[in-house]
Design a protein around this nucleic acid. Structure first.
Length: 662
DNA sequence: GAGCACTGC
């Protein structure tokens, strides 16, 4: 007993509600190919069920149990908990596997991993033959990768009758998932069993506004103050849509908190969003000082990704920022959108985890009735080019006939196919080309993958440089989106950015910054004094190493010509253009805005250089860019480099014929 | 003059 500190466990496993269902769950998995488990957070399904299956003998004969999660943190922390409960060292019988980190061994029986990771494993082991049971957790969130995994597993199960599947879902999606696996074969013996676990949550009293809120940030702040004055103890969680709203609310509440008399209970406002550093996020989880109430202002992060103890009051703005891809214009938008009923319920539930709570919805009850039942699944609002490539590489060729939980809109599929065709990843019959199958191995967006593969050819011969450009372009910093940033104001970072800036634009500037970082032995202090994100650069180092391994495995890497060890900027830019020719624009010299070169967009869309780009206040003629996004009624392009017009038609001949040659 | 949340042997 003394060997392991189990004090952090909320409850001894035998007392969890799921313990009563142990036998019936073991029986259901024995009898049915698919078991759908419905249970709230705190039911213990994710930690206990794999152990029940282990006990029931599902790890015999060298087979493993896989448990997938949509997020990496969940995979690692849950694995740690289960290892502690089973009293083994993490990485032995219980392990996890996420990108850049494999904590498994040949002893591993229960493996936690991300959905994306299991999809990648299927590339080399198409029937996932290592596993006897695969549990897909949090399927109701309808994340892209879990939807794809369900579609793949449904196919695999037809060939592997011994494979057992467990899908964990909230009530709202359970029946849809059951129908999906039943596949309309109602006359067949039942394939699917739904097991409902009683949750351990407390009632939440829900209150609405009489009128729609004009400024919900102001009302949320008022409500929080009112709770603090009138209601009993317990922390407050406020749902806003982004950093701006959070900072605005924080200011007012901080002002108020400073005026509270020392004799009264103190109030501690805290922000929570992904853009904050790890250290800044930790404040939210540490208990408040004595005689102090925490009020946490959060984005959607606190809805599913993160659980905070001690919340008794929830204030819900009723909105979320949702990313949506428009296949006609090729633009990604980030738009403030009303939440779904499922989200509103989930948010309210955050108040009832430790005792009965209250939820204040900052909209009228009639508005709640008008909300969509669920948020549209990601597969219906995302750029499908990477997905199609991935599925084709997995041998799922006829995408129209493949059954999805929700089929993606035809326009999204058509657009994705068109992009892949223009990149030579697909042939005239929409079959994967050799190039395409190599692109699928790379863990890069198709356009970047195409450019990276071009770098090994004699024409460009710039693999080392392109590995860096691709790693830098594909990495997304957790501290916000910028490689360059500073707390000392814009002038400070603008000055240091100039040190690395190149005439040609963002991509080669990234290359310079990366090379300098490596030359300085990846020093964190050096990053600080140069206003560079250490996190972003470190992540790029990991990605670059992985990309290099992937390219080596493909066996196509060329030797660097010793006479010209460093590629010319001309060659690198041309190489980038082989992937990004479709994302081309021309600057209007009068006002510095950009117009798309695609005929369908040319007359309608005015684009602006994103303020994070070097091209924000520089002159150019023709450019290519990595990202096109709409935000606040303006269309921005990001990661911009200058190119020659002739390169576009040279490397994108197929594309410009298709689009313009009618 | 700006960044919802995630993710890849």
């Amino acid at each position: 007993m003394a060997d392991f500190d189990l004090s952090f466990l909320a409850k001894p496993p035998v007392l969890l509600p799921i313990a009563r269902h142990k036998r019936s769950l073991q029986y259901a998995v024995e009898k049915y190919p698919v078991v759908i488990v419905v249970g709230h957070t705190g039911s213990g399904k994710t930690t206990q069920l794999p152990q029940y299956l282990h006990e029931a003998g599902w790890c015999a004969e060298g087979k493993m149990i896989a448990v997938t999660q949509p997020r990496r943190v969940a995979a690692t922390t849950i694995a740690g908990r289960v290892a502690a409960e089973m009293r083994c060292q993490l990485g032995q019988e219980v392990g996890y596997s996420i990108r850049f980190e494999d904590m498994t061994s040949d002893k591993t029986k229960i493996k936690f991993l991300t959905d994306g990771m299991l999809l990648k494993e299927a590339l080399s082991d198409p029937l996932l033959s290592k596993y006897s049971v695969i549990m897909v957790d949090e399927a109701h969130e309808r994340a892209l990768n879990s939807d794809l995994l369900l579609a793949l597993l449904r196919k695999i199960q037809k060939k592997r009758l011994d494979l057992k599947m467990i899908v964990s879902s909230a009530t709202i999606e359970a029946q849809a998932i059951a129908n999906f696996f039943q596949g309309g074969q109602d006359d067949q013996p039942s394939q699917c069993k739904i097991v409902v676990l009683d949750g351990r949550s407390y009632p939440v009293d829900i209150q609405y506004l009489d009128q729609p809120a004009e400024d919900y940030v102001a009302i949320a702040v008022e409500t929080a103050i009112k709770i603090h004055k009138d209601e009993g103890s317990g922390d407050i969680l406020v749902f806003f849509t982004g950093r701006d709203e959070i900072q605005r609310g924080l200011e007012v509440l901080t002002d108020y908190a400073q005026k509270i008399l020392p004799s009264d209970q103190a109030l501690q406002p805290l922000p929570l969003y992904a853009g904050l550093s790890q250290a800044e996020q930790m404040y939210v989880f540490s208990p408040a000082a004595e005689h102090t109430r925490k009020v946490i202002l959060s984005t959607n992060l606190a809805e599913a990704s993160v659980t905070i103890d001690g919340i008794v009051y929830v204030i819900d703005s009723g909105y979320v920022k949702l990313r949506t891809y428009d296949p006609t214009t090729n633009i990604e938008t980030l738009r403030r959108t009303p939440v779904s009923k499922a989200s509103a319920v989930q948010r309210a539930g955050r108040a009832g985890r430790t005792r009965a709570g209250k939820c204040y919805r900052l909209y009228p009850e009639a508005a709640y009735q008008d909300l969509l039942m669920t948020t549209p699944p990601e597969i219906c609002r995302t750029n499908l080019a990477p997905t199609i490539l991935q599925l084709k590489a997995l041998g799922i060729d006829n995408l129209a006939s493949t059954q999805y939980l929700t089929p993606p809109p035809a326009k999204l599929l058509a657009r994705g196919l068109e992009v892949l065709y223009s990149l030579d990843a697909l042939d005239d019959y929409a079959k994967l080309t050799t190039l395409g199958s190599r692109m699928a191995e790379l863990a890069l967006p198709p356009m970047l993958g195409r450019a990276l593969l071009a770098s090994v050819t004699d024409d460009f011969n710039c693999l080392p440089e392109m590995l860096t450009v691709c790693a830098m372009t594909s990495q997304q910093s957790q501290e916000g989106n910028n490689l360059f940033f500073s707390h000392e104001g814009e002038r400070a970072w603008e000055a240091s950015r100039r040190k690395f800036a190149t005439e040609e634009g963002d991509h080669l500037t990234y290359l310079n910054a990366y090379n300098a970082f490596v030359k300085e032995n990846q020093s964190q202090r050096w990053c600080q004094s140069n206003h560079l994100s250490f996190k972003a650069l470190s992540r790029a180092v990991s990605i670059r190493a992985q990309l290099e391994r992937n390219v080596q495995r493909l066996g196509i890497a060329t030797r660097v010509d010793p006479r010209t060890p460093n590629a010319t900027t001309d060659r690198i830019l041309r190489c980038i253009t082989t992937g990004y020719f479709a994302n081309a624009a021309r600057m209007n010299p009068v006002d510095g805005t950009f117009r798309s070169l695609i005929s369908s967009q040319r007359s309608t869309v005015t684009m602006h250089a994103h303020p994070s780009s070097l091209m924000f206040n520089r002159k150019a003629d023709y450019v290519i860019f990595s990202e096109l996004l709409e935000s606040g009624n303006k269309i921005y392009i990001k990661d911009i480099s200058k190119v020659e017009k002739s390169w576009l038609t040279q490397y994108g001949s197929k594309y410009y014929q298709v689009k313009e040659g009618k």
